[in-house]
Design a protein around this nucleic acid. Sequence first.
DNA 1: GCCCACTATCTCGGATCCAAAAACGTCCCC
DNA 2: GGGGACGTTTTTGGATCCGAGATAGTGGGC
Lengths: 241, 241
Amino acid sequence: MTTVSTKADDIARVLEDEIVGGLIPPDTVLRQETLSERFDVSRTPVREALRRLAALGLVSFEPNRGVRVRSISAQELREAFLVRAELEALATEVATPKMTPDDLAEMDVVERRFGELTLELRDQARRGVTRDATLFVEWMQANYAFHDVIYRVAELPLVERIAKSARRTFIGDRVWQARAELDQLYAKNDLQHRAIREAIGAGSATAARTLAREHVLSSNTLIEVVLETLGASGRAPGWNG
Amino acid sequence: MTTVSTKADDIARVLEDEIVGGLIPPDTVLRQETLSERFDVSRTPVREALRRLAALGLVSFEPNRGVRVRSISAQELREAFLVRAELEALATEVATPKMTPDDLAEMDVVERRFGELTLELRDQARRGVTRDATLFVEWMQANYAFHDVIYRVAELPLVERIAKSARRTFIGDRVWQARAELDQLYAKNDLQHRAIREAIGAGSATAARTLAREHVLSSNTLIEVVLETLGASGRAPGWNG
DNA sequence: GCCCACTATCTCGGATCCAAAAACGTCCCC
DNA sequence: GGGGACGTTTTTGGATCCGAGATAGTGGGC
């Protein structure tokens, strides 16, 4: 069973990762010729890949003028959090009665890992150490892993897909430059995860729902603060060779 | 009229409408050559359009084997309603405090139109008249128009976009063949619209939220019943590309 | 008569080629 | 010196061409 994938899909995946990961900054103009050279293909699959990204809302086509990586406004970011809050709340509610002891155990494992990484991050922050990106990325992944357990148990693929596409509007590593605010986020997230875990363990779907919703929304308010403090600095131009 | 649009986008829009409108039934295999002849273009823009539809989840690519119009499983349909329920509830909650008297008046106009169409439909159903599709389509549009007022006031474009894309998984005109069940839907929807309208008018965001959620969810349960009575013409779940 | 291999054809994915629109630069005129 | 018309260059959108994989049809072997 050779999983044949088309070039266009490969390119789309790579570009998608690079855009959502912040490697390709917003407002960048993507030249078809450049991309075709880079991936060593013709412009045809490149254009198909770009069409796909356009449909996903990651880039915007300006006819006869090229494609541009879309930058997300504060409004869009806020909305993305709202959507995530509602959908994760829904998934958590649905998942709660379906949780097996094994699932709960997995949540505990993931959450323990998340707690450790949180401690490391807070320690770094407290000592004023220059934050290293890899640790933060690990922390984010552990955070997502926690929610992924819930999604897996909920068995709502459509909900999961939409929520995760909303998740990706998170602006890569730009956010964690604000120190003090993030320290609160670290502690709060850990506590909230535990609360959600316990509510699920207690079999209270509505409580778990409420907690999950507030969990995402609190991240939202914090991100808003961060964006505001980063505020007038505008967009980091970051050039990609 | 400087709004030049590309052929690929035109084709994508047409095909999109035809698929969501049920004109192109699920599980249809789309031949690129056929489409290129029909739109009198080469296969290149056709393929780009298909890529876009694939990213929207309307068709699925099977590499080297063509594209197939995705059929939605009962599970997907149920999920779509769940998503709509949460997001419309959110939009309603956000919209409530932003409603101006003019907005409320518009809601009344739309709702009155909806009520009239509802009466016509119920009358037809009661007399056993062969249902005509145009009236049903009008009714659906009036139904959507009611919710669109809410979306407009809420000013949540992302939420609106996602909710409407979930809306389109509605299976065209296949559903309204079940008579008795739909009669309940007609009456119930009208009453629920009024209740939502009044809750908004009273300025109770949480009540409006709850009502909106239940409104969509009740449609869901009814659709489930309809699908069940229409028989287990269980379609193979498509695969997402 | 049945099954497997081989081939012919059909369709798709990708490469290449061409026309048209936009960005760029130059030159002329005021 | 400044502004606009005009030609060049760049880049995109679309058409055509080609190789690869898949399906179907045929023929040979058992």
